[in-house]
Amino acid sequence: KNAAKIVNEALNQGITLFVSDNKLKYKTNRDSIPSELLEEWKQHKQELIDFLTQLES
């Protein structure tokens, strides 16, 4: 999976991924984040940080 797909899947579940101080963060109104999503974010962390940083610049 690529970073764009992961970010879109998160958005579809009401979760916004973003970068703050070079760290991957998220915002959501959900009570909890599915563990498989958290695991996927960890596996692709640097790719996600790079992707989101490019989007914001």
Rank of each mutant, 00 (worst) to 15 (best):
K1S: 11
K1V: 13
N2I: 14
N2W: 10
N2C: 14
N2T: 15
A3S: 05
A3L: 07
A3P: 11
A3N: 02
A3R: 02
A3W: 05
A3Q: 02
A4K: 09
A4M: 12
K5P: 02
K5H: 13
K5I: 13
K5R: 15
K5S: 13
I6N: 01
I6W: 04
I6V: 04
V7M: 05
V7S: 02
V7L: 06
V7G: 01
V7F: 13
V7R: 03
N8W: 15
N8F: 13
N8C: 15
N8T: 13
N8G: 10
N8D: 12
N8M: 15
E9K: 07
E9F: 07
E9L: 05
E9I: 06
E9P: 00
E9S: 06
E9T: 07
E9M: 06
E9N: 08
A10R: 00
A10P: 00
A10C: 04
A10F: 03
A10K: 01
L11V: 06
L11K: 10
L11N: 06
L11R: 12
L11D: 04
L11M: 10
N12F: 09
N12G: 10
N12Y: 09
N12R: 14
N12Q: 15
Q13C: 09
G14H: 05
G14Y: 04
G14I: 01
G14R: 04
I15F: 08
I15K: 01
I15N: 01
I15M: 03
I15A: 03
T16Q: 10
T16K: 08
T16H: 12
T16W: 14
T16G: 03
L17E: 01
L17Y: 01
L17V: 02
F18I: 06
F18W: 07
F18K: 03
F18T: 04
F18D: 02
F18G: 03
V19Q: 03
V19M: 05
V19K: 02
V19N: 02
V19P: 02
V19H: 02
V19G: 01
V19T: 05
V19Y: 05
V19E: 02
S20D: 13
S20F: 11
S20G: 06
S20P: 01
S20N: 07
S20A: 12
D21V: 04
D21L: 05
D21R: 07
D21E: 11
D21S: 06
D21F: 07
D21I: 04
N22L: 06
N22W: 05
N22G: 15
N22Q: 08
K23F: 07
K23V: 13
K23S: 10
K23I: 13
K23G: 06
K23T: 14
K23L: 12
L24W: 01
L24S: 00
L24I: 07
L24R: 00
L24N: 00
K25N: 08
K25G: 08
K25E: 08
K25P: 00
K25I: 07
K25C: 15
Y26L: 03
Y26T: 03
Y26V: 04
Y26D: 00
Y26W: 15
K27Q: 07
K27P: 01
K27E: 06
K27Y: 10
K27G: 04
T28D: 02
T28W: 04
T28H: 06
T28G: 06
N29W: 10
N29K: 10
N29D: 14
N29G: 07
R30F: 05
R30Y: 05
R30D: 04
R30W: 05
D31M: 09
S32P: 09
S32T: 13
S32N: 12
S32Y: 13
I33Y: 03
I33N: 01
I33G: 02
P34C: 04
P34V: 03
S35D: 12
S35F: 13
S35P: 14
S35A: 14
S35L: 14
S35M: 14
E36L: 07
E36N: 09
E36V: 09
L37A: 04
L37Y: 06
L37S: 04
L37I: 06
L37K: 03
L37H: 03
L37N: 03
L38T: 05
L38E: 06
L38Y: 08
L38R: 06
L38M: 12
E39T: 08
E39M: 09
E39G: 06
E39L: 10
E39C: 07
E40P: 02
E40W: 05
E40C: 15
W41A: 02
W41D: 00
W41E: 00
W41Q: 00
K42S: 13
K42Y: 13
K42L: 14
K42R: 15
Q43F: 10
Q43K: 13
Q43Y: 10
Q43V: 12
Q43P: 02
Q43I: 13
H44G: 02
H44F: 13
H44Y: 15
H44T: 03
H44D: 02
H44C: 06
K45P: 02
K45A: 14
K45Q: 14
K45L: 15
K45G: 08
K45H: 14
K45W: 15
Q46M: 08
Q46F: 08
Q46N: 08
Q46S: 08
Q46I: 07
Q46Y: 08
E47R: 06
E47G: 05
L48T: 01
L48A: 00
L48W: 00
L48P: 00
L48E: 00
L48H: 00
I49A: 02
I49H: 03
I49C: 04
I49R: 02
I49F: 06
I49P: 00
D50H: 10
D50S: 10
D50K: 09
D50G: 06
D50A: 13
F51V: 02
F51A: 02
F51S: 01
F51T: 02
L52S: 00
L52V: 02
L52W: 01
T53K: 12
T53A: 06
T53L: 13
T53R: 11
Q54M: 13
Q54L: 12
Q54G: 11
Q54F: 09
L55E: 10
L55Y: 12
L55A: 10
L55V: 13
L55I: 10
E56P: 13
E56Y: 09
E56G: 15
E56V: 13
E56A: 14
S57E: 12
S57D: 15
